[in-house]
Amino acid sequence: MQKHVRQSVQEIEISGIRKFNNRVAGIPDMIRLTLGEPDFPTPDHVKNAAIEAIHHDFTNYTPNAGTQELLQAASHYFYDKYDLTYSPKEIIVTVGATEAISVAIQTILEAGDEVLLPDPIYPGYEPIIHLMGAVSVKIDTTETAFKLTAEQLRAAITPKTKALILPYPSNPTGVTLTAEELAEIAEVVRETGILVIADEIYSELTFFGTHTSIATMIREQTIVINGLSKSHAMIGWRIGFLMAPEALISQMIKVHQYAVTCASSISQKAAEEALRNGKDDAVQMRTEYNTRAGFVHERLVKMGFSIIEPDGAFYFFAKLPDSVSENSFDWAIALAEEAKVAVVPGDAFSEKGDRYFRLSFAASFSQLAEAMDRMTSFMNKYA
């Protein structure tokens, strides 16, 4: 049957995160620190809004871009939070940030275009780029504290460069960019005329200071992606936001329409409540994640791992000590089988990730404490 499947589809693979998680799923008594899922419940006021929508039979199609009420709420929310000035006509409600990424990439890329990605990076971008016949160009940030610099960006741009994908705070590193660092990158983007796809899904989980969007600096060259999965613990509700100048949005809506028609009507009502009355819902989660990060960081350093502390999100991208001779995949398999702790091998995020692993601290403190105890016992054999 393979002859009936497009070659580019055959060439992409299921995410390494999912593959590894599935690989260790059958091991009993496992503490899974693999997937990026908040361990907090969706706020009650958001759930109640969805229940009310169901009782009022709000179960039909909505406009393709989303309900006018939700688009208006999103416009106000992102202005209040990050000084972003997108009117309702410049926003599309998507099926999670994942669909927003896909729509943005499909809309702007032609075969042969080059797209720049800071490496390591979440593995959800490159396959879509490949399906479009475009080329992913990785920029190694392992020597710059996982931060893309303006100098690196300028050196990587060629006449074929169409866009830069800039996710921050970053999955898998948790590192973000300061306003000053963004301004330097924005200047290079302005000079060269490329586009930026700014994936800001973890913006509300910025630990220190306030998240700055590069769209406040180069609005006409920026596509912003955000959503409610991380900020409001609404992973399964699948609500994302795609924001761009109207000239781009008017083209993106066509791709979105033929892919999904519209986001779930019930989820849109829940999202409207989250944006209007839950602007501070992330505060408790953010505080707790920061506390967990401090605890886990101290324990991992004592075990011999090298770590750049995260500025946000809920991940560590840790480097194995020299005493570990295995690559990260074999080491992670042994950790799962012997210590019953699951983390994601670094090669799921980077070709240079062979000596790294990602650990998600989106788990209860008791689970993290037990996981650190198990990992300490496991790492004693490498002492």
Rank of each mutant, 00 (worst) to 15 (best):
L71W: 04
N64Y: 10
P127S: 02
V93T: 15
E114S: 09
V46R: 15
V135Y: 00
I121W: 02
I128D: 10
P63L: 03
A65R: 13
V115A: 01
K47A: 00
P41N: 00
L131K: 03
A100D: 02
Y86R: 05
E37M: 13
I51W: 15
H45C: 02
P41F: 08
Y82D: 13
E126N: 06
L35A: 14
S136F: 06
Y86H: 03
T85I: 11
H56W: 05
I54H: 08
P127R: 01
L33N: 07
P43F: 14
E52Q: 13
D39Y: 15
E37L: 09
V103Q: 04
R32E: 11
V135K: 13
A111I: 07
E69Q: 14
P38W: 07
A104Q: 05
P43D: 09
L33Q: 08
T107S: 08
G96Y: 04
Y82E: 12
A97T: 13
A49H: 04
G36P: 05
N48P: 01
R32H: 07
T98R: 13
A111D: 14
D57M: 01
I108L: 13
H130Q: 13
I92M: 06
G124C: 06
T42C: 10
L71Y: 10
F78W: 10
D39L: 09
D80T: 09
H56C: 07
I92K: 02
Y77V: 01
D39W: 12
E110Y: 07
G112W: 05
K81P: 00
D39I: 01
P127I: 06
S87G: 01
K47Y: 08
I101H: 15
V103F: 05
Y82N: 09
T42S: 04
V46G: 10
R32D: 10
V135L: 00
A53H: 13
H55I: 11
H56G: 01
A100T: 02
P43C: 11
V115Y: 07
D80A: 08
E110R: 14
Y79R: 10
R32I: 14
L116V: 04
L70V: 02
P123H: 06
I108E: 06
M132V: 00
P63A: 09
A100S: 08
E126G: 05
I51C: 03
A74G: 12
Q72D: 13
I54T: 05
T94H: 11
T107W: 05
Y82L: 14
Y125W: 07
G112T: 12
D113I: 03
P123D: 14
T62G: 07
E110I: 03
Q68Y: 07
Y86W: 10
V93L: 11
T98L: 11
Y125L: 09
P127E: 07
I101R: 15
I51Q: 08
S75Q: 02
Y125D: 01
I101A: 02
E99Y: 09
N64K: 03
